[in-house]
Computed example of a mutant assay.
Amino acid sequence: MATERHGALAPLGVLGGTFDPIHTGHLRLAEEAREALGLGGVRLIPAGRPPHRGEPGSTADDRLAMARLAATGNAAFAVDDGEVRAQHKSYTVLTLERLRAELGPQQPLVLILGADAFEGLPTWHRWTELFALAHIAVANRPGYAPHGRRWPATLSPELDLACRDRRTADSAALRATPGGHVIPFDMTPLAISASLIRDLVRNGHSPRYLLPESVLDYIAAHHLYRK
């Protein structure tokens, strides 16, 4: 559980993803969200059966192992195997319900999303229920105005309406309630993607420095992403 700060529970960040493989962009997203929003920690949650994409290039157990290697050395990061072990598809609403049951009704949870994922929220399973389960933190992509002064013009009307009374630029608000706010934060732009890494490996090129050395060694040792 997140540690207490000033008599209140520090918010716990939740960062899910296919992590196929996990890379520096994922880790910087978690770290910058932790620092910008005053999170007590971040749970990295590899998807077992991602519902919005095809079959991953590596097994769920491999992706879980790589996430654990990547998190080593950062005491603020913990890897959660709940989605990998679940028998159902990896829907975020189910994960947040599980965490809420595990951590209790008062623990602030903060779902960390990139701007693209946030804009696609209305396509997610039971998406309107996410706000009751957690706060949502949105990483600004390059070109967005900082600190929430301007929101993406591409928000759908239904998402814009759902967020209208939830927006805040004050990270202290995340400690005051268990969920319900939507807050932007600025992130260092990194042009790294898992698909780029897989393509590099598949074509015999080095992805070194795009992901942790331990993950790179795991990919080599287990012959992942080869032709």
Rank of each mutant, 00 (worst) to 15 (best):
A220G: 02
M187G: 13
P21C: 06
D186F: 08
A30I: 10
A60I: 06
R208L: 12
A176H: 11
G25V: 09
A162S: 08
R167Q: 11
F185W: 10
I136S: 09
H223Y: 15
L216W: 13
R164S: 12
L44N: 09
L130Q: 03
T168H: 10
P46K: 01
Y209H: 15
R164Y: 11
R126I: 00
R63P: 07
D81I: 00
R167P: 03
S58Y: 02
L113K: 02
L130T: 06
D186T: 11
V110L: 01
H52R: 13
G25F: 06
A191E: 15
I112R: 08
L9W: 14
E31L: 11
A71S: 04
L99S: 01
H26K: 05
R43K: 01
R150D: 13
A117R: 12
G120Y: 05
H205E: 15
K89E: 14
T168K: 11
K227S: 09
A153D: 15
L121S: 07
Y225C: 04
G104R: 10
L200P: 13
L64W: 06
T128H: 14
R175L: 01
A145Y: 02
P212R: 07
R164E: 14
T72Q: 10
A172E: 15
A173T: 11
A86F: 05
C163A: 09
R126A: 12
K89T: 12
A10K: 13
R164A: 14
A137N: 08
P11V: 05
I45G: 08
D81Y: 03
R149V: 15
L99Y: 02
L96K: 07
G17C: 03
E158V: 12
